[in-house]
Design a protein around this nucleic acid. Structure first.
Lengths: 245, 245, 245, 245
DNA sequence: CATGAATGAGCCTTCATTCAT
DNA sequence: TATGAATGAAGGCTCATTCAT
């Protein structure tokens, strides 16, 4: 059984290597530049071996998407479970998103690329379902926080404003920033926005303040909360980020 | 001369047809599914004829991008020149964005697809420059409004908050919503957001209120302004939209 | 009738223009670079018009070959009819060959190119026959001179050496030099032969001396004969060549 | 290791097959008729396989040229190292040339075709250099013999006649004969030259006699030397040629 | 199991030729 | 008669996938 386990580990490691290499190729050369030949050369395995790990090319791309979604949901869950006020927990999600983007920019970018290649259509229904579930995971965390906030009386939504308005707004704002940040061919700096992540932070605060989510940013040092969050919830990730810089 | 003009018109029409067909293919089958053969079949012209209108495939994709950028900047300019308070003019831009998305969802979607296919890299520097200029056009309109607002005393930004914060936040929020709306394989309704455009509207108001841009939404009926804007600035577009629905 | 004549002249001029332009393209861009489109653009006529002059592309190439063969045989005939000793007449042919090469290097080179493209096979039998006749013309002139020389007792071939040996040797020697001279990618100078035409002259003399064709080069100033030949038989050509230099 | 060697041998054989087939196509259908499709069909391999042996079409043509140049230079070197008088050694080169032409007429012909198709321009500088070196090899052998002859006092060139005159003359004469012999569409017999190789032999003797290269052909039985050369220096080649006839 | 040669469908592009205007 | 848009066969090349070794 030890043998089997070692073997299984080897297989998993190899799959990981193949995926890592594939993601690099995706970023470097675009979706069209991702060929089985190049994956084989870059991974130093033969094409046949690649095919023993993934039935076909789409499986590889799908696996990339799953990896990304898993990493994201894991971070989001941790960010959302930060102990503190509901607004602090929501901030935790924002920090998680930022950590995700900064730690795995390749994942985010590769995800954008594959999304546009209309690969989802070619993926098996089963796997598509899996992906959707993972995405749901993130949304669910946010929704739960909003509900907790309403129950706790820290957030009171006027008549006719459904609770998802809040998380949706934050999501879109953040997603929009990230997308623009990552999309090649449109250097934000050139368009006059040199520090997008700081701008994002500010706008997130405005949005939450706008909803009247207490404590308001005027009454609380959320910058300090961010610092604490990073240190307490994402210590390893923080270390990695600082190690890079 | 009539002959020439008619011929030229025919040529332009044919180019338009090719582009329309190409955009449809792009949406239906993704970037990889956009082949010259399929364009030929769908347009009912021969491949050779396609090549007489566009030197190569990239030219077609580039032309699509330019068409889109031109349509957008035109709408944005009109939206931004709406007479009224500066905040109303900013709302005008938001309405323009929404009109653009609803009138030309295919353009927006196709743009997303091509953007991710790292096509910009393959485009001639000249054309890339042209595209960047068109994009700049939209940003410039927004920037001008913010500046006017500051000068008019209707918006006062605190120390350290540069004026682009405002337009950037709005842009990202809107862009994020649109992207999620349009991205295939991720039905927003399934994720719990049934009316994204209304949610967007609300969040935009919050953001502008957050910045303290007067008159605040509590003091002014911006829903009515939206209606007026559509009727006065985008009457034709409105008619088209209503004609469809 | 004046109209018709003018029209015919126009047609011929146009054909000539098309051929000239085609030959240039052949030299500049090789056989593959010779396209009807380029001929049309370079000649400033439309493709349809080109097709009114030549049934198809092969006809153009064939016409080029005929033009070349005609120019050559005309020069050879003149060179061979120079009054003087038979050996001087034979020298006249050599001078004709050199004049041809120097005056129409494009013709010679284009001929080489077309020859290798196995175009002859595609030419109508009739036209092929025409070409062969023109080539025969050159050979006939040479053969006649050799026969005259034998009859005049200025050349006596030993038993078993047929008369064509002489002209064949000269032809091959000359043709070899010309071919090597004109063939691209093989700069004779680089291979150690800086003045091929002078070397040719010397070798031609050796060959004729070897055959014992009197007067031998030791007994006669053939360099002077060359000069006279050029001046008297090819005055116009000489002028053109000097005009260029 | 046996496996590897066998595999490598198979690969080499396959490359050889592809080249052989390509050369045939080149001869049968001209340069334009040489297409990857036809090579695939004729070699009974798929197009993809052809591309696994040669990066592109030009590489095939270049490989053909190299094969030819290698064969030639090898024969020339052997011919030139024949022991005997310097003139006999020069005759050795002539015999080598003839053996080359008769043994590999397809190589020679294909070389002519590719030469005219201005393919050299498209070849990598590296390979072009290689080809030039191989060609230089032949010239060098001849030059060395002439120099030896001068030193040995068997050949004395007059003032102003550089040593390359001799080898250049022979080269051009021989090259001219071969070219005319091989060029399609111009049957030498029809033009009145039934035995070109014998005519060539005679003319070569005349040329060398003309230069006064001793022993002169009158004093030495060079026909016998030819026979000995063939038997002693090119025994295998002779056997092949006789086997064919 | 690992390998990588073989396959062939499919892609982009060119170009000789035709024909409506 | 002149034009040049339309055509579609054909060419060079790539690449996902298979399978014998």
């Amino acid at each position: 059984m030890a043998t089997l386990t070692r073997k299984q580990r080897e297989i998993r490691d190899r799959s990981d290597l193949i995926l890592r290499v594939s993601r690099e190729l995706l970023l470097e050369r675009g979706y069209l530049g991702l060929t089985m030949d190049r994956i084989a050369v870059a991974s130093e395995y033969s094409k046949g071996t690649i095919y023993q790990h993934f039935r076909n090319k789409e499986e590889i791309v799908a696996a990339l998407a799953v990896q990304t979604a898993e990493k994201r949901v894991e971070l989001f869950r941790r960010g959302g479970t930060f102990l503190g006020s509901t607004r602090e927990r929501m901030l935790g999600m924002g920090v998680a998103a930022e950590v995700f983007l900064r730690l795995y920019p390749d994942h985010f970018k590769a995800e954008q690329i594959t999304r546009a290649a209309s690969i989802r259509e070619k993926i098996s229904a089963e796997r598509a379902q899996h992906l959707l579930q993972l995405e749901h995971g993130c949304v669910d965390v946010a929704t739960a926080i909003v509900q907790d906030a309403v129950q706790a009386g820290e957030l009171s939504l006027p008549e006719g404003v459904p609770p998802e308005t809040v998380s949706f707004g934050l999501w879109c704002l953040t997603y929009g920033v990230f997308t623009l940040l990552v999309t090649e061919g449109r250097p934000l700096a050139e368009l006059g926005f040199p520090e997008p992540l700081r701008l994002l932070e500010h706008n997130q605060n405005l949005l939450l303040d706008g909803h009247g989510w207490t404590p308001l940013s005027a009454d609380h040092d959320y910058a300090a909360v961010r610092t604490r969050l990073l240190a307490e919830v994402f210590p390893e990730e923080l270390a990695q980020l600082e190690g890079r810089a």
